[in-house]
């Protein structure tokens, strides 16, 4: 069998841990890990060497490295893979939590401009997070008159969930002003926060 682990965008040592786990889980076959940087690629080949396993490295059109590590009997790498044997483990996207329309405290005018700059950066940087949560004054960023509305719309088009706290919109009298994403309650906000280890809180 061949097991595919998509470890693009994951920080060291996560690709190595996932790959080691993948190898341990199979009796024999190939574990193919896709990573987006050279350091991760080198660490994976070191892992294979340390486990005395054969490996090969390929580079795809996007510059990602595919490290295939063979366990057990010599399989012809990838040639005999059957559709049902392919396991794809997707890399886990981050959940970004925005709790204010200002980034940091100190000066509100600076905070506002930094937040705009941050949201632009999120929209320009891959991999995208899987969700962005907005609560308290953070919801001022998801309304129709938001200075970052276009960035959030383009993130949503890329599949990023944009979730605003309904209680908060209501509190600021902005419930009819939502410009992007969905309104949600505390249950789903908490559920999203707990859905990953990879959360980043900004505000």
């Amino acid at each position: 069998m061949i097991k595919i682990i998509d470890a693009k965008g994951l920080e060291c040592p996560k690709p190595v841990i996932l790959t080691k786990k993948g190898i341990e889980e199979i009796e024999e076959g190939v574990v193919k890990t896709i990573v987006d940087n050279e350091v991760a690629k080198n660490n994976l080949s070191k892992l294979a060497t340390s486990m005395s396993l054969d490996y090969k490295v390929e580079q795809d059109a996007d510059g990602n490295y595919e490290v295939s590590i063979t366990k057990g009997k010599q399989t012809d790498l990838g040639l005999e893979k059957r559709e049902e044997d392919v396991v794809v483990q997707k890399s886990e996207g981050a959940v970004i939590i925005i709790q204010s329309d200002l980034m940091g405290s100190g000066d509100p005018e600076l905070g506002k401009i930094l937040m705009k700059s941050l949201i632009y950066t999120v929209a320009e940087t891959k991999p995208y997070p899987k969700a962005i949560l907005f609560y308290n004054a953070g919801v001022k960023l998801t309304i129709k008159s938001s200075p970052v509305l276009d960035d959030l719309i383009s993130l949503k088009e890329e599949g990023v969930e944009i979730i605003s706290c309904g209680t908060c919109l209501d509190f600021f009298g902005l419930k009819d002003e939502l410009g992007v994403g969905e309104i949600s309650n505390m249950y789903s906000i908490y559920e999203k926060m707990c859905s990953t280890q990879n959360t980043k809180t900004i505000g």
């Binding site: 401009i113 705009k116 700059s117 632009y120 950066t121 200075p147």
Partner: peptide, 11 residues
Amino acid sequence: VKAEIKTKTIP
């Protein structure tokens, strides 16, 4: 903004 020019503050 006063001159009605569309801006985007970015890093």
